[in-house]
Design a protein around this nucleic acid. Structure first.
Lengths: 235, 235
DNA sequence: TGAAAATATTGATAAATATCAAAAAATAGG
DNA sequence: CCTATTTTTTGATATTTATCAATATTTTCA
């Protein structure tokens, strides 16, 4: 059995059955996993640093082992839009294009497995499961972006924040309603949700006042009324 | 030389060098094009009808020959978000998932070439160029969705409309600044841009009043001040 | 630890957009 | 061609969010 992707000691909240959880690797035989292991290289990146920048050659694919990153896109007028946040288990850089069309900024210390995109593609030609898995991951990413389109197009500020909270609850490994770590700043939330930082702040205050959520610490979110938050977030 | 994709008689504004323009087919040898032709089937769809619905099996890929379609996604609360408009030369259904995650509604009479997705994928394994082209198309689609994310997240109503106009000018075959046919309703524009129909209407009035655009007919747009419209649209 | 810097919150106000209602214009069908 | 229906525009108003400014809180680092 392959020893790659045993992140438990790195990220204790990471689930046991990581292979099942991790779309790229589930269904693979031990032999196939061993081959993947040869291709992988553990890489670290500090809080605030960029894993890669927009418009640089898209030579690598990353699998997040620990930490949180923001996918951001800078436009010619200098403004940025955060496309999403990624967490342990997620993949980065599964683009089709020659260059990355987004930058990836680490919100925390981050550990990733780094794969040569070329070699991963070659391997995926041979290993049918792997290819299918990659397609499925891309499909999920696309689906998530379309959901975000809807949120930005149709939802109010308060609802957008609830949407973010539900995403965090669902996607942050180990997150529970009473313990969600917000690794991103208020400005990051604003840039993700298409709001200003003041609006984010005021909505947080409103949600607190209504006792839907609480903040024992600035970045420690508790969802007190899950059904209400979930309803506001609903797509 | 293959005779597939000779849409000139169907859509007179379609450019001469259709193979160069059409990402899926450029670079292919006559022989490869012939094989593709065997896979293609001409299919028609009327104004207002759906080419396919959301959550139905994604068995086909379509290439628009003539007409305009809207890609729309319905959410569980019944509201819809239009993801984009597609024009002659564009591809539909290049999804990774088993089912279509969007519906496709025809805004005009539409003619498409219809390919079995399975067969197209098989062929793309053999024909390297074709595969590359498909990846490139997907990449463009993704890139366009991310641009729309930014527009919905950061831009004002007036700017969003200008963004739409510039998209139409660039992507509608045969469109010129003084002659852009708006095949979509005001409500469609609103659902695409995350606005209400009233706001769309008022912004059009404002753009008219400022003489940036004119409407000789309800759905015939003229861009009078291209640099101003372009500047407002800028990403 | 304590001062400086960065980040977040709150307040007052302005601007943008949505909502509701009515009128006008365009389209469809006999 | 004319009427009924649909779509679009316009108006009045309410709501939401942004902007600008000030204060409070948190973090950083000497």
């Amino acid at each position: 059995m392959s020893t790659i992707f045993i992140p438990k000691h790195i990220h204790p909240t990471y689930s046991n059955n990581v292979f099942d959880d991790c779309l790229l690797f589930h269904n693979l035989t031990p032999n196939e996993l061993d081959r993947l292991e040869d291709y992988a290289e553990l890489s670290k990146c500090d809080d605030g640093e960029y894993l890669f920048r927009q418009d640089t050659p898209a030579d690598f694919v990353y699998n997040v082992i620990s930490g949180t990153v923001a996918i951001e896109r800078i436009f010619s007028n200098g403004r940025r839009q955060i496309i999403g946040f990624l967490f342990p288990g997620d993949f980065i850089g599964l683009t089709h294009s020659k260059n990355y069309d987004c930058a990836v900024r680490c919100l925390t210390k981050v550990e990733v497995y780094k794969f040569s995109r070329k070699r991963l593609n070659t391997l995926s030609e041979e290993v049918g499961h792997l290819k299918q898995n990659m397609e499925q991951i891309k499909s999920r990413i696309f689906s998530r972006v379309m959901e975000q389109l809807y949120v930005l197009g149709q939802k109010k500020a308060l609802e957008r924040l609830c949407f973010l909270f539900m995403q965090l609850l669902e996607r942050l490994p180990g997150a529970r309603a009473d313990r969600i770590e917000l690794y991103m700043s208020r400005q990051d939330m604003a840039d993700y949700l298409g709001l200003t930082i003041e609006t984010v702040s005021r909505c947080l205050a409103k949600l607190k006042a209504d006792e839907l959520v609480a903040f024992p610490k600035l970045n420690h979110l508790q969802i007190l009324n899950l059904s209400a938050v979930s309803e506001l977030a609903e797509c």
